[in-house]
């Protein structure tokens, strides 16, 4: 009953976002072009690195391309479904209109997380899928069914992780009001996810790899699903990713609830 109600709410919010983006049709073309442009700039360093050597920390060019594919796809999800809503929260907090969200008899986290979508960002998702196809053509083989299924499961956990990280960032807005810098920081850190996580092994005796696996789980987001597609992901890593993402989501939920309790709204 409750799930049905929230699904209906999601439908209505999606409809409103759809209506809004239809008002700005030109966006579709600009989004498409910028997305293509960024994909190619993202690929440029890859070409530079692999022109010198055939292999980087155990990743061939085609395999590393898969990681970039996942990065592009997740960027699409981040900027299309997560970022717009949660940036809206920061605006709500600054203007004091979060009051209206908190007055509604529905979960506040759900309401703020679904308030805005940018459907045109689906272009990035398509580009990501295109990169997968190209990468496998380059590798001269296709992924196994189990590998594909595992990567679909990891798509879920990656999205959940990204979303939870954003919730944590946004929760900071309750304490510092201006989180623009934090969101920039987040975007620049996310940029590391375009490389296979083992690339960073040489830096600080692997400290960076540890950080990107356990602290800011970038490795889980892009490297794991790429490994799953290649059939190289150990089952325990898959289980770890699912459990880890669940725990991370739970933790961020707790932080959000605590922040709401602290919220005292901008003075009238």
């Amino acid at each position: 009953m409750k799930v049905k109600r929230y699904l209906r709410l999601l439908g209505i919010q999606l409809k409103a976002s759809g209506l809004l983006s239809l008002q700005y049709r030109a966006d579709f073309f600009t989004e498409g072009l910028t997305s293509l442009f960024w994909t190619f700039t993202a690929l440029a360093p890859l070409f530079v690195v692999y022109s010198e050597r055939p292999n980087l920390e155990g990743w061939s060019f085609g395999e590393a391309l898969l990681v970039v594919g996942w990065f592009t796809l997740l960027q699409g999800i981040l900027e299309g479904a997560i970022n717009p809503s949660l940036t809206g929260v920061v605006e709500h907090i600054r203007k004091g209109t979060l009051d209206f969200v908190l007055l509604k008899p529905a979960d506040a986290q759900f309401l703020v997380s679904t308030q805005r979508f940018q459907p045109w960002r689906a272009f990035n998702v398509l580009t990501g899928v295109g990169l997968f196809v190209y990468a496998f053509m380059h590798l001269g083989r296709w992924p196994s069914v189990t590998g594909l299924l595992a990567s679909v499961l990891l798509l879920g956990t990656s999205t959940l992780l990204l979303y939870s990280l954003w919730i944590l960032t946004v929760s900071a807005a309750f304490f510092v009001v201006r989180v623009d810098n934090l969101t920039y920081l987040f975007t620049s850190i996310f940029d590391f996810a375009r490389w296979p996580s083992s690339v960073f092994q040489g830096v600080g005796r692997g400290v960076l790899t540890l950080v990107f696996t356990y602290v800011i789980p970038l490795a889980l987001m892009t490297t794991f699903p790429a490994q799953a597609m290649l059939g190289r992901l150990p089952p325990q890593s898959l289980v770890g990713a699912v459990v880890g993402a669940g725990l991370f989501a739970w933790g961020s939920r707790q932080v959000w609830l605590r922040s709401i309790r602290r919220y005292t709204s901008a003075s009238s």
Binding site: R5, R8, A16, L19, K95, T97, F100, K104, A106
Partner: peptide
């Protein structure tokens, strides 16, 4: 302060509130 969705007609906010308040 306002709760109406800025870029959409008020009817959309009404519809949203109808769903939220069941």
């Amino acid at each position: 302060k306002q709760q109406l969705l800025w870029d959409l007609p008020p009817a959309e906010t009404f519809e949203l509130n109808r769903a939220i308040y069941d």
